[in-house]
């Protein structure tokens, strides 16, 4: 205890993280979210099937964090967040192994990934038709969609490239997604 008194004061950012009371818990979670969400999503992205599943797992982890009885300091909570998220991801994978057949990666993905020669051919043809559909889209819409969904650029970057607003890029991508979805449904019904 005497030692504690003679210790140098903690750095400023640690002063800002006392054990959170109930009322500040949401604030702490929000702070974790702002500072670590991107890292968490990247961490999860390698453990689950899709970006949006990673978001869903992260979300569940935040909810568990909010319901902790004895939340500790932020550094502890951060570790807890990542550990919880990893566990949720593992649970989901186990559940998915049994449900995967039912939720069905449907015709397109099946065709694209199933490697018997005939199937591979018809799968490639289906992908070719989808490629042609994309090429026939209005140019700015096509460009937004390709840069966003195939090259993985974010809306802001694309907006600068095309000289349009972020929200316009997102509208284009939404229209393009629906156009592809309608086409895929048509092919499936043939």
């Amino acid at each position: 205890m005497v030692n504690a008194v003679s210790m140098p004061p903690p750095p400023a950012d640690q002063v800002a993280e006392p054990t959170p009371s109930d009322e500040s818990r949401a604030t702490v979670v929000e702070r974790l979210f702002r500072e670590h969400n991107e890292a968490l999503i990247r961490f999860l992205r390698g453990r689950v099937g899709s970006h949006n599943e990673a978001l869903e797992v992260a979300q569940e982890a935040y909810v568990r964090l909010l319901s902790l009885d004895q939340p500790g300091a932020v550094s502890y909570l951060r570790a807890f967040l990542f550990k919880t998220a990893a566990n949720i991801a593992i649970d989901r994978r186990r559940r998915h192994q049994t449900f995967d057949k039912v939720t069905g990666r449907q015709l397109f993905t099946e065709l694209a990934e199933n490697r018997t020669p005939e199937r591979q051919l018809s799968g490639e043809q289906a992908l070719g038709r989808l490629g042609a559909l994309i090429e026939a889209m209005p140019p700015k819409c096509r460009q937004s969609f390709v840069l966003n969904q195939i090259h993985g650029l974010d809306a802001a970057t694309i907006a600068t490239q095309l000289g349009i607003t972020d929200s316009m890029v997102r509208k284009y991508v939404v229209r393009a997604l629906l156009h592809c979805r309608a086409h895929m449904d048509d092919e499936r019904n043939d």
Binding site: L127, G131, M184
Partner: peptide, 12 residues
């Protein structure tokens, strides 16, 4: 599901 399919598409 579309984003799964996009992984197999060559960019036009």
């Amino acid at each position: 599901e579309i984003s799964d399919v996009m992984r197999h598409i060559a960019a036009p």
